[in-house]
């Protein structure tokens, strides 16, 4: 296809991606170097019956004027990245210099908001992805052996957790595990502990979120693996049978190698999706015990009057760096293949 034709066809899509994906990343970079204006303070003299006192107040008007004159705020260099809400370099220095052993270091670092979110995000990503894939694979194996008429309905119900709006899905589960909801009270009855609440403790909240994650992630793996199972070479399977392979050996030596490339694909997609975990934290109102990188950005932006653009941008950039690290094996491999071919 000549360059000109190619350009004409691809231009709208490329412009859309440049304007609303590439440019925002630039915008994030710029914003992360700035920080909100300090509030303009004024001294006011309050005179009452007991004499006059001077009081320092925020001059809202002047603050607003400053903000509208220079909406980016003031230049702060890389300051935002290193402050307490982000990489917290000096805090970590203090912790490392003066602590009561490893446990203390871990606990205190965990109390820094960025590291807390990072830890949860990574745990979520690397726990939910494999578990979801294993569950999906098992479902695919069982569905594969179900009779043909039942497959349709089974696939229908299995797809639901995946296509459901994440916020809505988490709300539905949240209401059920609420201490007055059906699952919540069932658990209380089971453990004979009327005060048991999944929301109360950090480990339980994490566990709940992981369960939700596996619940929504499994159907995707299921569908892809199920489709892969349909293309398993029948001849190979039958010759393995004749060679005397047991059912497990057939799965191990024929089916799993056949699904290998699919598994890589699923893992890649799921890592990307799980890394941006965000809605369930809102849906489960879990922010007291679990926060994620995306949630931190959301939280900074959400303030009604004081949106912390600089802080949100810095977290965003660190998140993007995380994404790149996550994708780097794929990118490096692609690059290698490509330069070998050329």
């Amino acid at each position: 296809m000549p360059h000109k034709t190619f350009l004409a066809f691809i231009l709208p899509a490329v412009i859309a991606m440049l304007l609303f994906i590439a440019l925002p990343i630039v915008s994030v970079i710029v914003q992360s170097l700035y920080v909100e204006h300090e509030q303009v303070l004024e001294e006011v003299e309050n005179c009452g019956p007991f004499g006059c006192t001077t009081e320092v107040r925020v001059d809202a008007e002047a603050t607003a004027a400053l903000k509208s004159a220079d909406p980016l705020g003031r230049f702060n260099g890389l300051g935002t990245f290193f402050n307490r809400s982000h990489l917290a370099v000096s805090e970590i220095g203090v912790i490392l210099a003066d602590n009561d052993g490893l446990g203390d270091i871990a606990a205190r670092i965990y109390n820094l908001p960025f590291y807390k979110a990072l830890l949860f995000t990574l745990s979520y990503t690397f726990i939910v992805t494999p578990l979801g894939m294993i569950l999906g694979f098992l479902i695919a194996l069982s569905v594969n052996s179900v009779s043909q008429v039942l497959k349709g309905p089974v696939i229908f119900f299995s797809l639901l957790p995946m296509i459901i709006t994440p916020l809505i899905g988490s709300l539905i589960l949240f209401w059920m595990i609420n201490s007055q909801g059906i699952l919540g009270s069932a658990l209380q009855a089971l453990f004979n502990d009327p005060t048991l609440s999944l929301k109360a403790s950090t480990p339980l909240t994490w566990l709940t979120l992981f369960v939700y994650g596996v619940w929504t992630a499994a159907p995707f793996s299921f569908v892809v693996f199920y489709a892969g199972l349909q293309t398993v070479p029948g001849d190979t399977l039958e010759s393995a049978m004749i060679d005397g392979a047991s059912r497990w050996e057939r799965v191990r030596y024929v089916i799993i190698p056949h699904l290998g490339p699919l598994a890589t694909f699923v893992a890649l997609v799921q890592l990307m999706d799980n890394f941006r975990v965000f809605e369930p934290i809102v849906g489960f109102s879990a922010e007291a015990n679990a926060t994620s990188l995306s949630w931190l950005v959301f939280n900074d932006l959400q303030g009604e009057s004081t949106q912390l653009f600089g802080s949100a941008a810095a977290t965003s950039l660190l998140t993007i760096a995380g994404v790149i690290v996550l994708l780097s094996p794929v990118l490096v491999r692609t690059w290698r293949e490509f330069s070998n071919k050329a």
Partner: peptide, 24 residues
């Protein structure tokens, strides 16, 4: 090929990080 690879990277961007680029 490179456009497709760029698209793959863009696909991985958490949406909220892009939103933080849009707002201001």
């Amino acid at each position: 090929f490179w456009i497709l690879i760029a698209a793959l990277v863009f696909r991985a961007m958490p949406h909220i990080t892009l939103v933080s680029g849009y707002l201001l």
